[in-house]
Nucleic acid binder design. Structure first.
Length: 321
RNA sequence: GGCGCGGUACCCAAGUGGUAAGGGAGAGGUCUGCAAAACCUUUAUGCGCCGGUUCGAUUCCGGCCCGCGCCU
């Protein structure tokens, strides 16, 4: 039976670039509307990655319950699919208890995986990937593109010959499912999250101010022990290929530890990386549907009040006369 | 004051007597399970200034200005 849209519980999504004040806004709204926070951050979900991710500390977590933080070990692989499943479970659980789920999103793909769902294709196959990776190393990624054209010309048209990562995934899907990826896509599509009234609030501070804040914050991370944190994480997982150690800040701290960069250079590189990342996040989020954009920082009281008004408008249950 | 080297886009930088590589930044974009990743597009009628030689000069010549180094 079709329940009227008003019957669905609300789901609040706060999205925006790094350092735009998403967390602060989320906490403020959580307190006003008895919410619980579901983090949507591909690095903060790893245990031990604290200062480099600006992860909410014990004070924040005492104020408001947080989910999807510290759910994976650094050496573990955790994908968008894993995120989608766990985040959906968390959101459903929060709503079931009558609380307001608040998704705080910086990782565009993960947010899409949660809300729109992923392509229902096969999961990763490390064997296939390993083979393709070495093939790409020998003959260049355009060679993979030629393989994909043979397997699935329609899919190949969507991927640039230099984009090894996406070529590998497309070929992997074709090989492990023994079908054309484009056909599978046509048949199955995505599996969107249902049963919620979703309100998306986007934070879009002025670019110059955002960059200034990013510079300050990236520097502060180094001042607050990012290098030490990186050193101990690297020691704890001696195996190579620890994905999150490749991420912003940690990568540069590693380069400093290996003597490839001076501390000053590492800080400058981290700042640069965060600025570039913020820009990419904005281009991703611009195409996110139905976002109500607020042109400021989430910790600005004016912005916080506007956001709160929106939540009130959206979550007000239609009165049954 | 003399000698030497250098002055190319926001930054670094290659280069040629025939109409300005590359990298970074900035901006825009792609993204269907590695996404804080990966990939793509784009940016100098202009080469310190003024003259000269030449069909043609950023490139050769002269002068000037600026920077760096050395000498007196």
């Amino acid at each position: 039976m079709n329940s009227p849209p008003g019957a669905d519980p609300p789901l609040l999504v706060i999205l925006g670039p790094t350092a735009s004040g998403k967390s602060a806004l989320a906490i403020s709204l959580s307190q006003q509307f008895s919410g619980e926070i579901v983090s949507c951050d591909s690095v903060a979900l790893y245990r031990g990655f604290e200062v480099g991710t600006a992860k909410p500390g014990s004070a924040e977590r005492a104020l408001v319950p947080h989910h999807l933080l510290d759910v994976a070990e650094p050496g573990e692989s955790f994908t968008a699919g894993d995120y989608s499943r766990e985040a959906r479970a968390a959101v459903a659980d929060i709503a079931r208890r009558g609380q307001l789920p608040i998704v705080v999103g910086g990782t565009g793909l993960y947010l899409r995986a949660l809300l729109e769902g992923l392509f229902a294709g096969p999961q990763r196959s490390e064997e296939v990937r390993e083979r393709l990776r070495s093939r790409a190393a020998e003959r260049g990624s355009p060679y993979l593109h030629k393989i994909l054209i043979r397997l699935d010309a329609a899919a190949a048209a969507h991927v640039h010959p230099n984009d090894a990562a996406k070529l590998i995934r497309a070929i992997e899907v074709c090989l492990t499912s023994r079908a054309r990826m484009s056909d599978l896509w046509q048949q199955r599509g995505r599996d969107p999250l249902r049963g919620f009234r979703i309100l998306r609030i986007g934070l879009n501070p002025p670019r110059e101010k955002l960059y200034a804040r990013i510079n300050m914050r990236a520097k502060q991370m180094f001042d607050s022990g990012l290098v030490e944190e990186t050193r101990s994480l690297a020691a704890r997982c001696p195996t190579q290929n620890v994905m999150p150690l490749e991420s912003l800040g940690y990568r540069q701290a590693m380069q400093f530890l290996k003597g490839e960069l001076t501390l000053e250079q590492a800080i400058a590189a981290a700042q640069q990386g965060h600025r570039n990342y913020a820009k990419r996040q904005m281009t991703w989020f611009r195409s996110e549907p139905d976002v109500v954009w607020l042109d400021g920082f989430g910790d600005d009281p004016v912005i916080a009040r506007q956001a709160a008004e929106m939540v009130v408008a959206k979550t007000a249950r239609p009165t049954a006369t």
